[in-house]
Write a protein that binds this DNA or RNA. Sequence first.
DNA 1: TGAACGATTTGT
DNA 2: CAAATCGTTCAA
Length: 196
Amino acid sequence: MEFAPLPLEFYSQTSLQLAEQLIGKLLIKETDEGIAAGFIVETEAYAGPEDRAAHSYNNRRTARTEVMFGPAGYIYTYQMHTHCLVNVVAATVDVPQAVLIRGVEPYIGIDLMKRRRGESKTDRELTNGPGKLCKALGITMGDYGHCVIEKPLWISEGRTFSDVATGPRIGIPNSGEAKDYPWRFYVSGHPNVSKG
DNA sequence: TGAACGATTTGT
DNA sequence: CAAATCGTTCAA
């Protein structure tokens, strides 16, 4: 197969390491409407019990966060207001870490993405945000708990980006000192990175 | 620039 | 039951 899934072992590292490693990888979603995929250009690491910005802070375990306590390489989808955000579980069993996908570069199925997001959207507007890329790729709460090494939603080797920068995470102003941790990774100057 | 949207979880 | 949240869109 052309876009072979990465091995499950790849995800068994800390969320910080995984967030950096995921830059450039290809995120693929296949539905009955067709196939859509994009290169990951922006991620954020959430480090579990000690990270005040994480849903799993202080080992908070609910129906929503349950999947983060399982093995690495599973999808953690989370609904915020009217939108769906997608994370990949990192680390190992009982260590609730995850990496948020915040931006991708459209690669396959751009016409399908435009149909989902609105025909008037530019390629940049299609996927330059965590909720936007979920809608463009057709990722929903139905993908919660899915294993990322098999269809219809998986990640394969992609492209290499040379200019990867780090900075504070976005949208967590009320998380004490955790809001300043440089746990956001992004391709510098890339159009599909959120919040220029 | 600002308000509406509304699933899940926490705090009164 | 009220408020806050890893966000996006539309209206002025």
